[in-house]
């Protein structure tokens, strides 16, 4: 078990955003998190790497309470891919992938460069290493962001709606890269609205609603035989929209 979340609670001001969330993740699992906007998906991810603090409950990472860990060391082992990419605007593509390795992992330049080139190859961005990040398309930016995260050799990567800010024609390239990343065996939690992708890539799907995990099922079961009425409703709404498209 790589991650264990027990009875997590989080309030923003007086609004309960996470209400008693529990979850365990095994090494190598790929989990997709579905749920409508505002249900607490981002907050859950952000608690795992302490970008948000939480009010109650416990998060164990590799068996240890994350609050007892050195926060920077913890974060170096937990990758995060943001909806809005957040590539470092002052660095080119290659340096975006090197800076964490040299400044956090204390690797030397050659090692960092080699690793950066390797991951940029994996995401298909080898031809862009010297490009300024502002010259990239959204899809390319997100692929570099994934490479940047992989360079840290994290135990787990958290994806927060990695394709939601992309033009439709770029969604596919990013999803394909995530599928490739899956082959490396890294554990992933992916918040997404891409149902087909969730079906294909994940072994387990969570459905969040109003700060609660309403459903936590193996992927096949989730889509064919959901237990919860809200999940059924959610899936039905999605299928209806699909037909209308």
């Amino acid at each position: 078990m790589i991650l264990e979340i027990k009875n997590l609670k989080k309030k923003f001001d007086n609004q309960e955003v996470l209400k008693d969330v529990s979850l365990t993740v095994d090494k190598g699992e790929v989990i997709c998190v579905l749920g409508s906007s505002g249900s607490g998906k981002s907050t859950l991810l952000r608690c795992i790497n302490l970008l948000n603090n939480y009010d109650d409950g416990e998060i164990l990472f590799n068996g240890k309470n994350i609050l007892d860990a050195n926060v920077n060391e913890l974060r170096s082992k937990i990758g995060m891919v943001f909806q809005s990419f957040n590539l470092f605007n002052n660095l080119n593509v290659l340096k975006n992938c090197m800076v964490g390795q040299t400044k956090v992992l204390k690797k030397n330049k050659e090692e960092a460069r080699a690793k950066a080139l390797e991951t940029l190859e994996l995401v298909g961005m080898s031809d862009f290493i010297n490009k300024n990040v502002k010259q990239l398309s959204g899809g390319q930016k997100q692929r570099v962001a994934i490479a940047r995260s992989l360079c840290m050799e994290p135990d787990i990567i958290l994806f927060d709606e990695p394709t939601s800010a992309l033009d439709p024609e770029m969604v596919g390239e990013v999803l394909n890269v995530i599928k490739k990343v899956k082959e490396t065996g890294v554990t992933m939690i992916i918040v997404t609205h891409e149902m087909q992708f969730a079906k294909e890539v994940s072994s387990r799907v969570l459905f969040m609603n109003d700060g609660v995990i309403l459903e936590d099922s193996p992927t096949k079961e989730f889509f064919t035989n959901p237990k919860n009425d809200r999940t059924k409703e959610f899936l039905k709404r999605y299928l209806d929209n699909k037909v209308n498209d």
């Binding site: 970008l51 974060r75 995060m80 943001f82 990419f85 590539l87 470092f88 940047r148 840290m152």
Partner: peptide, 10 residues
């Protein structure tokens, strides 16, 4: 997001 991304890689 720039600061946050930097913090997120440790």
């Amino acid at each position: 997001g720039q600061y946050e991304a930097a913090r997120s890689i440790g």
